[in-house]
Design a protein around this nucleic acid. Structure first.
Length: 145
DNA sequence: GCCAACGTTGGC
DNA sequence: GCCAACGTTGGC
């Protein structure tokens, strides 16, 4: 799961313990949270759009999917005028902090690991803020720490 | 339903 | 700041 550290970093999640992953406004990314995630699933916390983009820590899915309440809040930058509590558009899950890496596993390091070549987040043109990670990829990343 | 125009993402 | 790549919008 990607986040810009100036918006919400692994340090923020460590502080909060658990946080709702609100603000996703892409249908495919929403669908991963709504349809594919299970409580307890491991999450790689990725810092994007920053000096050293890469994996900054670990988290886990901590809730079933639920409405992203920011879609209903007029003053919120994630407000969606098409959404109503009766007909919501956006759902998200909560994530729980597991651990922070002493140093980020950088994007360039991920790219230079041949066995990770098929990782979704490394594919050309990928902009999705949430992408699935296979068990294999997860294990390989553990070995990079 | 098509598709041009526009907006966003995010690495560099 | 640039720009490739992609998603969304809206006229037709």
């Amino acid at each position: 799961m990607k986040s810009e550290p100036t918006e919400y970093s692994i340090d923020h999640l460590e502080r909060d313990g658990v946080s709702s992953w609100f603000g996703v406004r892409n249908y495919q990314a929403r669908n991963y949270m709504r349809d594919s995630m299970k409580v307890g699933d491991r999450v790689l916390f990725y810092h994007s759009n920053c000096k050293i983009p890469g994996i900054a820590g670990f988290a886990e899915v901590a809730s079933l999917p639920h409405d992203d309440i920011t879609q209903f809040i007029f003053s919120d930058k994630h407000f969606d005028p098409r959404s109503t509590p009766e007909k919501p558009t956006w759902q998200c899950v909560d994530v729980r902090f597991i651990g922070k890496l002493a140093s980020v596993i950088s994007l360039s390091e991920l790219r230079s690991t041949p066995r990770l070549a098929s990782m979704k987040i490394l594919q050309k043109g990928n902009r999705l803020s949430i992408t699935p990670v296979t068990d294999d990829e997860y294990e390989i990343i553990q070995s990079l720490i």
